[in-house]
Design a protein around this nucleic acid. Structure first.
Lengths: 222, 222
DNA sequence: GCCGTCCCGTCATCAAACTGTCAGGTTGGT
DNA sequence: ACCAACCTGACAGTTTGATGACGGGACGGC
């Protein structure tokens, strides 16, 4: 169990570092964001504790870079102020938990244990199928490096397919999810048309929307 | 992405409902626990936001009932007071997250997005015979690594054979399973033909459909 | 307010898949 | 050898899905 601790306040850092060591973890402690990023590129950590405010690079920047590299490593953010906008930004960037200073060390320890307990795939925030990536936080779809622009309806259908994958999704389910109340009034082939448009836009991707005759659709990697 | 919102305070409910809608979710908003339970039985939600205190049935009761039905739908509880005994009860009952009132709407949004990021951990049993595997959730049949595409009728028959295996299944049973009401009107050799087609598609598998002369069919591993 | 653009739902048409029936061959029991 | 049960390839009707085109409505820029 190797843990990276990034915290600029030297006093706090040494206290936490010693505490974690005594709890049996291997700890790398760094004082700023640049070093944190450097260590993250170098080693594979079981968990990361990131201070929000740090010299050179903020914890948030480090976190975003980490997630951009598709690393699912659990991240615990430390924040000085407890404003909701901070929390939101942190959670959206892919933080798994946050702790407001000042905190009791036992609580930090408990939260780290909680993060390490979580199943590994519970931390993957993106929906992936082949080289097709859907990021729920930004609601964008990328194939490889290129971003694809989808309409609201298309996005809604694609998201449903991805969440249910690899199961087939019934036309009825699609209607209910996308058109809500008016699900019954959906024209006979409206869904077909949207699926055709989606397929056209996803033409270059290494994933395909299969038709399950009489049932609905399913998305699969190719 | 369809979300159920159960909250008795009308002001809060409408605010949250509108906010969620603007974020692109399809929202069903209900004012009490009974209606929440009713909607949960009716629709398949991506996430549920449950107020703790509600008329007729508390959020906790709704949650317990939901989990009793083995539904893995992520649940976010709203609680008025932040007492640890409340938290424990809620989390024990299977809530995935909780939020203490009063809260800022952006934070609620962020937490819902976090919940939706989690992969559903539902795991249904699969039917196996030899190297032939039928997965009911995806409606797919695989032999070894290759996937076989079956029509609805074929799948229906195969499923019946697998469920009854290693017993033989009468023609009458097959007729009832596949054609239900019109079971009597099934032509004399319609079933034969479908079995022939099934056998053809299952040719490479290490399982075989045997004929029990005068009775029906049985599937066995070879 | 006017215009262009984008998006959506419907229609008509086309293509493909699925199903039931039949005819003729095969098998197995007696 | 005979008969009933069963197998299988072919075929045509029907259902289901795919796709290009069209018109209306929403939205934003001017």
């Amino acid at each position: 169990m190797r843990i990276l601790l990034a915290e600029d306040d030297e006093g706090l850092r040494s206290v936490v570092e010693r505490g974690l060591r005594e709890s049996g973890y291997v700890v790398d402690a760094v004082p700023d964001g640049d070093q944190a990023a450097a260590y993250l590129r170098l080693y594979d950590y079981s968990a990361v504790v990131l201070d929000w405010r740090m010299p050179k690079r903020s914890g948030l920047e480090v976190l975003i870079e980490l997630r951009a590299g598709r690393m699912p490593t659990p991240v615990l953010m430390l924040t000085a102020r407890d404003t909701t906008s901070d929390r939101v930004a942190g959670l959206d960037a892919g933080a798994d938990d946050y702790l407001v200073k000042p905190f009791d060390f036992p609580e930090l320890l408990a939260r780290i244990r909680a993060l390490l307990r979580r199943p590994p795939d519970a931390q993957q925030p993106r929906l992936v199928c082949g080289d097709l990536v859907f990021d729920p936080t930004t609601r964008t779809v990328t194939v490889g490096t290129t971003t694809i622009s989808l309409t609201t309806t298309e996005l809604s259908i694609l998201e449903l397919l991805l969440r249910r994958a690899p199961a087939a999704v019934g036309r009825r389910s699609i209607a209910v999810q996308v058109w809500d109340e008016e699900a019954d009034a959906v024209g006979s082939n409206t869904i077909d048309v949207h699926l055709a448009r989606l397929r056209a836009k996803l033409a270059g991707a290494q994933s395909r929307i299969e038709t399950v005759r009489g049932i609905g659709y399913r998305i699969v990697a190719t």
